Computed example of a mutant assay.
Amino acid sequence: MDWKPAVLMMAVVIMYAVLNALTKMAFNEGMHTTVFIVLRLLVAALFLSPIAYFKERKSRPKQTMEIFIYLFFSALLGASLIQWLFFLGLRYTTATFASAFNNTTPMFTFLLALAFKVEKIDVASRSGAAKLAGTAVGLAGAMVLALYHGPTLMGPPSGDHLAAAATHGGARRWAVGSVALVGFSASWSLWFILQSKIGTKYPPLYSSTAWMFVLSFVQMASVGAATEKMSLQVWVPRTALQAATVVFAGIGSSGLGFLAMSWCVERRGPVFTTAFMPLIQIVTAGIDVTVLHEQLHLGSVVGSAVVVVGLYLVLWGKSNEPSIDSKLPPPSHSKPECDDIKEDVCCSTALKEEKGEHGA
Score class of each variant (00 low, 15 high):
91 R>W: 13
91 R>E: 12
91 R>P: 09
91 R>C: 10
91 R>Y: 14
91 R>S: 13
92 Y>V: 10
92 Y>S: 13
92 Y>D: 11
92 Y>H: 14
93 T>M: 06
93 T>G: 00
94 T>Y: 05
94 T>F: 02
95 A>Y: 12
95 A>Q: 11
95 A>R: 00
96 T>Q: 12
96 T>V: 15
97 F>M: 04
97 F>R: 03
97 F>T: 06
97 F>C: 02
97 F>N: 05
98 A>H: 07
98 A>Q: 05
98 A>R: 09
98 A>P: 05
98 A>M: 10
99 S>D: 13
99 S>C: 14
99 S>W: 12
99 S>V: 14
100 A>Q: 06
100 A>C: 07
101 F>M: 09
101 F>E: 08
101 F>W: 10
101 F>L: 05
102 N>W: 09
102 N>E: 12
102 N>C: 14
103 N>R: 04
103 N>E: 12
104 T>M: 14
104 T>Y: 15
104 T>G: 04
105 T>C: 09
105 T>H: 10
105 T>K: 10
105 T>Y: 09
105 T>A: 07
106 P>Y: 09
106 P>V: 05
107 M>V: 03
107 M>E: 02
107 M>W: 06
108 F>I: 08
108 F>R: 00
108 F>N: 01
108 F>A: 03
109 T>V: 13
109 T>P: 11
109 T>L: 10
109 T>Q: 09
109 T>H: 14
110 F>E: 02
110 F>H: 01
110 F>P: 04
111 L>G: 03
111 L>V: 09
111 L>W: 03
111 L>I: 10
111 L>M: 03
112 L>F: 10
112 L>Q: 01
112 L>G: 04
112 L>W: 02
112 L>A: 00
112 L>N: 01
112 L>Y: 05
113 A>H: 01
113 A>G: 14
113 A>P: 02
113 A>Y: 03
113 A>F: 01
114 L>Q: 01
114 L>W: 02
115 A>I: 14
115 A>D: 05
115 A>F: 15
116 F>L: 11
116 F>H: 06
116 F>R: 06
116 F>P: 03
117 K>C: 10
117 K>I: 12
117 K>T: 12
117 K>G: 06
117 K>M: 11
118 V>E: 02
118 V>P: 05
118 V>W: 04
118 V>Y: 03
118 V>N: 04
119 E>G: 00
119 E>R: 02
120 K>T: 06
120 K>H: 12
120 K>I: 06
120 K>D: 07
120 K>N: 10
121 I>C: 09
121 I>N: 03
121 I>M: 13
121 I>P: 04
121 I>W: 02
121 I>Y: 01
122 D>W: 04
122 D>S: 14
122 D>H: 12
122 D>F: 11
123 V>S: 10
123 V>G: 09
123 V>W: 15
123 V>H: 04
124 A>L: 14
124 A>R: 15
